[in-house]
Computed example of a mutant assay.
Amino acid sequence: MDQFAELSNNIYDSGIIKEGLTSPTSLILSLMVTMIPKIVPRLMPKMMTKMYPGVSVSRFDDVNYVHSVEDMFRDKFAQNIMVVVDILDEEKYGIKKARFGQEGQLAKIIKTALHSLNIDIRQFDSDRLAELAELVNGRSARAEMYNLIGDMVLAVFQTIGSIFVGNPY
């Protein structure tokens, strides 16, 4: 397709970038939201051994550990973002949703923090957060691109870290 674009001088849009999502802050935020589930499973073994020196870290040596924890964290992170989206929609449209357990506690913390800071959340657009939740969950059209960029950034930092600090694994 690239050769055809060069011959015809046409630019083909694959629909990956939507209008309004090309600002640098939204790109950086999208990359950060994608990288958080990748970074946490890699840092958790180091934090656990520093905080609790006698804890067994054998489960961290499993090859599938990083991927399974990354998937679990990604799902929970997307759920928590959707709770915030629901809270924003509740305040905007006046429709209340009953929540129980951890989701109810998180919603109570968020509502209390927003009300104590005197933030009027009716002016916020929940569509952007819903798009971030889809990006985190991998359902967005841009998810593969950001995952690839995130993997590349992690590989670069792991290489640099192994040069200066030694082999981290």
Rank of each mutant, 00 (worst) to 15 (best):
I36S: 08
E70S: 02
L129F: 05
T25E: 08
I149F: 02
I81N: 05
G15P: 04
F60D: 05
G150I: 06
A130N: 15
L117K: 11
S162P: 02
P53E: 02
M1E: 12
V156A: 09
K50L: 15
Q105F: 14
D61S: 14
I16P: 09
M32V: 07
E131P: 08
P24R: 10
G150H: 04
E19A: 04
N9F: 09
V84F: 10
I28G: 00
S58V: 11
A98E: 14
V153Q: 03
L154T: 11
Q102A: 14
E19K: 02
N9R: 10
N167G: 00
V63A: 10
D61A: 13
H67L: 10
V84M: 02
H115K: 15
T22C: 04
D13R: 14
G20I: 01
M145C: 01
S162G: 01
S14T: 11
A107F: 11
F124W: 00
I28N: 10
Y52R: 10
F124R: 05
L7E: 14
A78F: 05
Y65S: 00
D71W: 04
F157I: 01
R59F: 14
G20Q: 05
E91A: 13
T34E: 01
K111C: 08
V83Q: 08
E134F: 03
Y12I: 06
F124Q: 07
F157T: 03
S56N: 15
M152P: 08
F164I: 14
K76I: 12
I17R: 12
I11M: 04
L31H: 06
T112R: 15
M51H: 00
I16S: 09
V66H: 11
Q105S: 12
L43N: 07
L132D: 04
S58N: 13
A113E: 07
G54H: 10
S26A: 11
I160L: 10
I95G: 06
M35S: 05
I95C: 11
G150F: 02
G15D: 00
K92I: 03
N9L: 08
V33C: 09
R139L: 12
K18L: 06
L29Y: 07
K46N: 13
T25P: 00
L132I: 08
Y146A: 07
I149Y: 02
F157A: 09
